[in-house]
């Protein structure tokens, strides 16, 4: 199996909006969801539909993977890239990328996005976090007051 797998030269990823990305196998190594497709097929070129990821997001994820898969880049250059990568994203970009990372089952990218999101909600009020995540509370005001009281030791 190993020999057959290594014969794959180009992998085509098709995003939810139909946009197409051709990448080398080492770029998708971290995407376990894609890997499980590849393991099932043994053709020279593989085309994989990713109906839960939009093209713009997939383009960013591939950019990230390319940078991190590169052996020529120094650790410092990768850190600098990560910093800029997060800086240019809006809040909902981060949430969508986290969702994509979860769907693609990418461990280190998921960690990276979780950390970026945590940095935005650190030291913020519950109201801010609720708004940030666009969570609609299903507690009645009474229930919420009760919960706050129960957990008042965390709100000091």
């Amino acid at each position: 199996m190993a020999a057959e797998k290594s014969s794959i030269k180009i992998i085509t990823l098709i995003a939810a909006d139909g946009s197409v990305f051709e990448v080398e196998p080492n770029i998708v190594k971290e995407m376990k969801t894609v890997q499980s497709y590849i393991d099932e097929l043994d053709q020279n070129t593989v085309s994989i539909p990713l109906p839960n990821v939009f093209g713009n997001d997939l383009a960013m994820i591939i950019e990230y993977c390319k940078k991190h898969a590169s052996e020529e880049e120094t650790k410092e250059a990768k850190e600098e890239f990560d910093f800029e990568f997060v800086k240019r994203m809006k809040s909902d970009d981060k949430l969508r990328l986290l969702q994509a990372a979860s769907y693609l089952n990418m461990e280190s990218f998921l960690q990276f996005m979780a950390k970026a999101i945590a940095a935005e909600i650190e030291n913020q009020s519950v109201e801010f976090v609720r708004d940030y995540f666009q969570i609609e509370s299903d507690f009645t005001p009474e229930e919420e007051a009760e919960l706050r009281k129960e957990n008042e030791w965390a709100f000091k």
């Binding site: 986290l98 945590a118 650190e122 519950v126 969570i135 609609e136 507690f139 919960l147």
Partner: peptide, 17 residues
């Protein structure tokens, strides 16, 4: 996500929903 927060902030998320 919660792992990257100080535990105090992580506990506070209990009243989100």
């Amino acid at each position: 996500i919660l792992s990257f927060l100080k535990t105090k902030d992580a506990v506070k998320t209990c009243i989100l929903s």
